[in-house]
């Protein structure tokens, strides 16, 4: 069954959608969209480094994404405003990554795959790496769900309940770095944040509790992945962007419907 590249692509897309959903909700609640961008852009630098050193692209992307996430966490609140800091770090990481790639011989053709994803080229090994990453992320978020949510509401409330909000922030950072590393093959560095945020934002009008929002985001992400793959196959369009387009259409629909319902209620 896994011999079929379409099946592998579908499984990869499903995995990333499911892992991105709960993290995406936290990114939305904590207003960390730009943080996700910085981590994802840094991953390109990681890809370049791992190609140069001929190590696993996944490991390289994970290491640099994690380093970037930790740098941002450490620097926040010292001097520059967060969005300025992230703007500097995200785009410099991307630029350095692109320059680094240009030094490598015979890689130029591959760059597209890392910027925009190449889900149809997912190998069995890639699939295994993706699902191990997905399992890790799900285990991490389910384990830390309640403390993370409390820390998201208010750091002092967390302290008063014996939770260290800085540690929870670190857990989230680690989860984001893993999702970036596994998603880079599926949608590419430039569109990873779309996969985090759009399903979560589409799920918001449908949900009354944080948990239902995460589940709805996973379903919407999964539907986007499968439908996007199907459409890209039918119309011969690039898969990653098509997946994001589908989720954007879902976002518009759920929010429009919610608005109409509220107006008529």
């Amino acid at each position: 069954m896994l011999d079929d590249f379409l099946i592998r692509a579908m499984l990869a897309g499903l995995g990333v959608a499911v892992a991105a959903a709960p993290l995406g909700c936290f990114v939305v609640w904590r207003r960390m969209a730009y943080f996700g961008d910085a981590t994802a852009h840094a991953a390109i630098l990681g890809v370049a480094l791992s190609l140069a050193l001929s190590t696993s692209v996944f490991a390289g992307a994970l290491a640099v994404a994690l380093a970037m996430a930790l740098t941002v966490s450490t620097l926040s609140g010292r001097g520059y405003a967060m969005d300025t800091l992230l703007g500097v770090l995200a785009h410099s990481a991307l630029a350095f990554g692109l320059v680094a790639v240009s030094f490598l011989q015979g890689i130029r053709l591959d760059l597209d795959a890392y910027l925009f994803g190449d889900i149809l080229a997912v190998s069995r090994t890639d699939l295994a790496v993706i699902w191990v990453g997905v399992a890790l992320i799900l285990a991490l978020t389910i384990w830390r769900w309640s403390p993370l949510l409390t820390a998201t509401l208010n750091p002092d409330l967390a302290y008063a309940s014996g939770i260290d909000p800085k540690r929870e922030q670190l857990v989230l950072t680690l989860g984001l770095a893993i999702v970036v590393a596994v998603a880079i093959k599926v949608v590419g560095a430039l569109l990873i944040v779309a996969l985090l945020i759009i399903p979560a934002a589409s799920a918001r009008p449908l949900a009354r509790t944080p948990e239902s929002m995460a589940v709805a985001a996973a379903v919407i992400g999964a539907v986007s992945s499968l439908a996007g793959l199907r459409l890209s196959f039918l119309f011969d369009t690039p898969s990653g962007p098509t997946i994001v387009c589908v989720s954007a259409v879902i976002f518009t629909s759920t929010n429009l419907v919610a608005r109409v319902l509220r107006a008529t209620a």
Partner: peptide, 14 residues
């Protein structure tokens, strides 16, 4: 963007 009923809020973190 965070949907939260009073009941759910009271159940954080336990």
């Amino acid at each position: 963007t965070l949907p939260l009923t009073v009941r759910r809020f009271l159940c954080l973190p336990h």
